[in-house]
Each structure stands twice: as C-alpha cells, then as structure tokens.
Amino acid sequence: MSLLRCTGVTKRFGGVTALAEVDLEVNEGEIVGLVGPNGSGKTTLLSTIAGSLPVSAGTIEFAGRDITRSTPHHRAHAGISRTFQVPRPLPSFSVEENVATGCMFGRDSMGRTAALAKARTVLELVGLGEHAGSEVGKLTLHERKFLEIARAIALDPQLILLDEVLGGLNPSEAALGMELIASLRTRGMSVIYIEHNVRAVSTLADRMYVLNQGRNLAHGLPADVLDDPRVVEAYLGGPTDA
C-alpha cells in the first residue's frame, strides 16, 4: 500500500529549476534508495517531502492525505522524520536531550521525564548509550551521524528520510549503519535513503530511484536500475568503468 506519493514535484529557486516534475512513491515497509550525481536534486526532494522547502508545483500525499502545504512540524506529527546530510545536533542540548526533543514533540507527544527515558532506549539501539549525557560537541563524525538517526527514530515515524547517513564513515562504521537501517523496517518504518555509495544502496533498497539534473531518470529494482545504460551514463559519466 502506498504511504508516500510525490506527483510532478517541481522546485525553482529564482530562475534555476532544481526539481522538474519528479514522481516518487514509497510503499509501507519499503526501503527506497534515492541516488544521482551531485546536484541532481536528491536533498532538495527530501526537503520538499519533509516540508522545509515549499514546492513550486506538484503534490505530495502521505498516508492518503495531501500534505503539500503542511508545515514541517505537522509532517513530523503525521509521521515523517528526517536526518540532515551535515549533522545538525542542537548544540546546547546533551546527546540524550537532542533525542528526547524528538520524543517530546514527535508523533506521540510526551512529557520531559518520559521523553528522556525513551531517548535512552533509542540511544542504546543506535549504539550511543554510553554517550547519553555527553555534550554533542564531543562526538565524532560517526557518532554525530548516528545521533541524527537516533533523533529521527525518536519521533516514532512511519517514514524516515535518511540523507547520506553513511557518508564519510569507515567500512566497519558503515556496516553498522547499514544493519541499523535494515532494522528500521522491522520496527515498522519505511525508509527513503539517499546515498552516494550506489553499492550500499543496492544491497539495502527494495527499489531505487535515480535523479539526474532534477528529473526522474529511472526507477525499479536495484539490479535493473544499475544495468540501465542511461543510469550508467549519467552516474558514471560514460559506459565504461563499472
């Protein structure tokens, strides 16, 4: 069953068209990979789904409701949460307070004490349990990336938008991250997963979308999409070097 449906989503910044009539659909329980070269509009599309960027044209439906004009916090309450490509922890909050804020204001709003308790279980889940009381400034890049995931999980979303959460991680950290992403599905979440590393996406994703210059280039099963000559052309700059 369709959870998210973007139809003809267009985003213009002045004269620049960042997204041109992009269609994307996510079914319940699905992990959808979103790939494309730099500047192809992946993060812009994510921001229009999360609501932080208003669309210039097109519609976005979530769980059967039109959310095209909803504010970001309404979408968070409806069940959409996101991470940021460059981690944006709340700097004056501790690690657990960052996560607790998501618990407090997410889909099930709760009081501060309950939120802190829930935050600790979420931090255990992503392997940051021992850092619960730390200042965010003391975290490494990999820990900051995982804090982004923890905070997004804390909202108890139906759809989680992950923006290059594995970028810049070493292979063992990335492997942990992939396990974590795979586990989100078993927790009842659907995932849109932006990644530069096409191989990581193709192992995790049920289906893939490829964007190029703000347009849909291809979508389908990972194996089919990766074999599509247009994708090879756009993504790798030529038919050689697979």
Binding site: G51, H73, A76, H77, F84, L90, S92, G102, A154
Partner: peptide, 10 residues
C-alpha cells in the same frame, strides 16, 4: 539552537 531542526523534530 536551530529553528529548522526544531521544526523537523515536530
């Protein structure tokens, strides 16, 4: 701290 993040957290 970060109004955009605050909104995204609901």
């Amino acid at each position: 701290d970060d109004e955009g993040v605050a909104e995204s957290l609901g």
